[in-house]
Write a protein that binds this DNA or RNA. Sequence first.
DNA 1: CTAAGATTGAGGATCATTCTCAAAAAGGTC
DNA 2: GACCTTTTTGAGAATGATCCTCAATCTTAG
Lengths: 151, 151
Amino acid sequence: MSSRTRVPDELHETVVSRLARLGQRYTTNRKSLVAMLWAEGRPMTLPEMLEADAALAQSSAYRNLVVLEEAQVLHRLVTTGPFACWELAEDLTGHHHHHLICRSCGVVEDFTASPDLERLLGKAVGQAGSAAGFVAEDHRLDLLGTCNNCR
Amino acid sequence: MSSRTRVPDELHETVVSRLARLGQRYTTNRKSLVAMLWAEGRPMTLPEMLEADAALAQSSAYRNLVVLEEAQVLHRLVTTGPFACWELAEDLTGHHHHHLICRSCGVVEDFTASPDLERLLGKAVGQAGSAAGFVAEDHRLDLLGTCNNCR
DNA sequence: CTAAGATTGAGGATCATTCTCAAAAAGGTC
DNA sequence: GACCTTTTTGAGAATGATCCTCAATCTTAG
Ligand SMILES: [Mn+2]
Ligand SMILES: [Mn+2]
Ligand SMILES: [Zn+2]
Ligand SMILES: [Zn+2]
């Protein structure tokens, strides 16, 4: 829905350097995936990506998504649905966020928590160590409900 | 780790009535699954359950877990791992909680958030509607890190 | 231009999960 | 108990998302 038109040069350059660290190139196929996720502005499943760009081969898309994940360019979401779901890494969009997940259709939208909430989440991460020697480093928050489309 | 020994009669009765609503029986196999999750006190994956009780047949276990989920007796967790992971429904344990997830071995432990944090989470759920017509009803919080065993 | 290495994509392999179906078990009624 | 009906079971087959293989093609370095 967001439809940002062009991937900023700076983002492309960052992607190039992260891939380079792994001896990987920023090919046309990989650019397509990054540009598509940038333009869409929300996480996309693999079938959505294949449909959005008919030139993508399934096996190559799967492989490239993993490469981009290893390069910390993309982030694979944890979902209930049957398909892998991907978004740009947070440090590339500069936008720490969480997700609204529709229980009916499974669509995922971004959502920014209030500063107060983020502060308490950080505190919870710091204090988790008390529980059975677990050391927390990060948090993940999803709000579950019904999207505009499904109501 | 928790090793609660016996499932309280009240819990069994609740399970019986929830299954009855769907015309389903509380069979030995289903009792084994419920008792095992009660005793273990943390979410278990399907292979863990099969290993813990060699009498369980894989295909029946899968089927019964789904039946128990439909009866709202069990809850299927969303994980990165390859296996389905289950726990008792929160309203059966009377214990709203979240999860500590080990990035290394994938083990899941329960975790209770502070009242302040829960209050802000509830507030976030209520306010989510402002974002593009999404109506949130529930929240899910995971803390990601390293378990005692993996450190 | 050439050689070395990376990438591609069609098709096959993998594997968690679901489905099928005949046998067994559980209730209900007498 | 016997009898009938419905549910449950479990072994094996089917499904399907994902990953792997490998020969062909593309890129880059020299
Ligand atoms: Mn997102
Ligand atoms: Mn739990
Ligand atoms: Zn929806
Ligand atoms: Zn661990």
